[in-house]
Design a protein around this nucleic acid. Structure first.
Lengths: 224, 224
DNA sequence: CGGCATCCATTTTGATACTG
DNA sequence: CAGTATCAAAATGGATGCCG
């Protein structure tokens, strides 16, 4: 397998030859928030069978986009992480996400799963480097029982699964509320006012939060 | 058909539900350089059967990403064009291309097709808005018998199939040379020095050309 | 757990023949 | 040309089962 290629000497086609198969870009999306274990990947990718997951991981390894790592001491369990080449697919995945935030995030369907990590990546997708100029802050997000943090440093962001040492601000909410916020139907400030979310920590960091992550106004694709 | 969905409330997954199937993003790539007729799409997408092409086009129409148009007077033949939503997939396609330019454009394989339009889109992928600040110029590319033009206007580009009225500069070369240039193995200035390409027109436009389209240094994905 | 192999029902695709 | 119809080959999904 994997002999199916577009046979085009084109940068887009060559890229899609490597990561265009079903599930592959979503697998990379999962790894963009940090190394993940086999089982956690299965949780994030419901519907991807264990056999296909193994095949995709092997493919990414063979192509130099991901590699197997041992999680640091407390865990010491095998996991998968992106290589430099894999990490650099981030902008492409985020560009797809940016488009989706604007054109495809209508009402959540009843059978759709939702994970906090996707929303955090959504935030990263609409990070505005200019608005974050001169800001250095670490935000920690507590969503139900999951924790993520976003490290903003003068025009750059990193969004990583897991807690951080010294967050400047902490936002606590539920998956449901977070879904509404990243879909643009609810603002974080409105959620805190109604008690659906709580925000605590450094005042400046909190004040600038909505400015540096600018969600696009949702649009409809209806026949125009 | 189209019942296969990732069932994830995630911007990336929602986008890939719409355009993640095989051929779809390449079809959009073709349309990113202007409206195309059914037959021309088949030429640009060798391997995509006529049945699947029809299905994909119908899908894009149904989802509001493309629509059927009549080509302007001289031609007056049906064609397909992107809607606003479809056009906005450009950044995502270009992000994939940018990655490919850096990590995947090794030696052209003997069975790979190559079209000038792909290279022109490659140029657009590495357009540097800052370097183009204050520049207003139209470049016309003559590649074998195909013509494209790039309209640069103070930080923005458009790359369109077909000639333009008043090009500021004209670059003439062959498909083979152009392939080497966009793959980063040959610079345009070196190609003109050896006569593999000719460049004529406004001096400033020509002088700034290599600066505004900055091809990334190719990298290998070898095990790191 | 992590990871791979097997079996099988469905979809998707690729290639080509065919029609207005 | 633009597009349908048809059919064989390949990919997917889902359920297990196995082994360290």
């Amino acid at each position: 397998m994997e002999q199916r290629t577009y046979r085009q000497y084109c940068a887009t086609a060559r890229t899609l030859d490597l990561v265009g198969e079903r599930w592959t870009l979503l697998l990379i999306r999962e790894l963009l928030t940090g190394p993940k274990r086999y089982g956690d990947l299965q949780v994030g990718l419901r519907g991807l069978g264990t056999g296909l997951l193994a095949a995709r991981l092997k493919h990414l390894e063979r192509e130099g986009l991901a590699h197997k790592v041992l999680l640091p001491p407390p865990a010491r369990t095998p996991a998968y992480a992106l290589t430099e080449a894999g990490e650099e697919l981030g902008p492409a995945v985020l560009a797809l996400a940016r488009w989706g935030l604007k054109w495809a995030m209508d009402e959540r369907r009843t059978d759709e799963t939702f994970h906090a990590g996707w929303a955090v990546l959504g935030l990263r997708a609409c990070f505005d480097p200019d608005a974050a100029a001169g800001l250095r802050a670490v935000y920690e997000f507590h969503v139900d029982d999951e924790i993520f943090h976003a490290r903003v440093d003068d025009g750059t962001v990193e969004t990583v699964h897991g807690p951080t040492r010294h967050p400047d601000a902490t936002i606590t909410t539920t998956k449901e509320v977070l879904a509404e916020v990243t879909a643009g139907r609810l603002t974080l400030s409105h959620a805190t006012e109604t008690g659906a979310a709580t925000a605590a920590g450094d005042d400046e960091a909190l004040r600038r939060l909505p400015g540096i992550f600018r969600l696009p106004a949702p649009r409809s694709r209806e026949t125009k």
